[in-house]
Amino acid sequence: MKNSHASILTMILVLVFAVPHVFAEVEWKIDTTFSLSETPLDTAASSNGKWIFILTDAGKINIYTVQGAHRETIDVGTDVDKIRTGSDPNIIYLQSRKKKTVEVLVLDFIMDFDLTGSPVKGPVDAPVTIVEFSDFQCAYCSRMTGQIDQILKNNPKTVKVVYKHFPLSSHHYAVKAAMASMAANEDGKFWDFHDQLFKNYNHLNDQKVEEIAQSLKFDKDEFNKRRNNPKLLEQIKRDYRQGIEAGVRGTPTLFVNGKMVRDRSVKGVQKMIDSALKKQKKP
């Protein structure tokens, strides 16, 4: 038996080492050069692939786009000697051997969203804009509708809400529901349809959508034709791409005047609204 095992092992080794090596030729080039006035100590990239962070010996982090455009400089102090990034593209970990510390630096990137064609609720000229990325089959998004209504009620003249579609791949009817809502938007009934979809978020299907359309007095044939328009799907895809570029990972995700909301409670959002209004009052 031992001789048999030894023979098998020998055959395996012969087969392994008999396989010819495959050599891959590597082509390379310097894609981007970041010119600095200080000595670089460490670099890191954001998890979404949008930003390059360079720590210098002057205790500063320079933020660049991957194309090499400088966007911001943050003074973190000369005690910081290493930087690291994680799964959240808005967080940098600052390591200091001298102080024996790791600090968490949270970045607030101000996003400039294209709002063309997106449904709006509230005064069009409101100084504060809340952009909501949402999914009609998301339970958390369904709960957010009441909070959004409360926020608008508390800020009737200063806040508007813009709805952006971010259908999750795990929700198989989310895209169809989004297209139906945008078909309703063409008749100015997006928000009515929106409310009904969220009331039924956990059992959405073609039949339920047709029931909602009928309750809102849509012609069945015309509505079905409209909600299957490929142009609506393109807009939903644009919304989704904007969300990905802005660092949206799940739903609901809110932005107040371009800044991502981390505390989605009514109190937390109100704090950001007040801060945005205060900034606009400064000379």
Rank of each mutant, 00 (worst) to 15 (best):
F198Y: 01
K199S: 09
A18F: 11
F109D: 13
T129Y: 07
I83W: 04
A44L: 06
K278M: 02
I212Q: 03
Q67L: 00
I8E: 09
D239S: 11
Q207C: 04
K220D: 13
A69E: 05
V14F: 14
M179P: 11
M1L: 13
N3D: 13
T78S: 15
V120W: 03
Q242L: 07
N155Y: 09
A24N: 08
D149L: 12
F23Q: 14
I12A: 07
F193S: 02
T73I: 09
P230T: 11
L9Y: 03
A213E: 03
K82V: 07
M1C: 08
N257F: 15
E38G: 00
A246E: 01
F113N: 10
V269M: 13
H70V: 06
S35W: 12
P119A: 12
E211N: 05
Y64L: 09
V161C: 06
R238E: 05
S134E: 12
T73V: 12
I83E: 05
V80W: 03
P127A: 15
A24F: 13
V104I: 11
G117Q: 02
N155C: 12
A174W: 09
F190H: 08
F255S: 01
K199W: 10
L55V: 11
S170H: 15
K278F: 09
K176G: 02
P127I: 15
R84C: 01
H165E: 10
M272S: 07
E27Y: 14
P89I: 04
I74L: 15
F166P: 00
K231N: 10
R97N: 03
V175F: 00
H70N: 02
R262C: 10
P283M: 04
G68W: 00
H165K: 12
H5R: 15
M11K: 13
D135C: 07
N224K: 14
K160D: 10
D108E: 08
T253M: 04
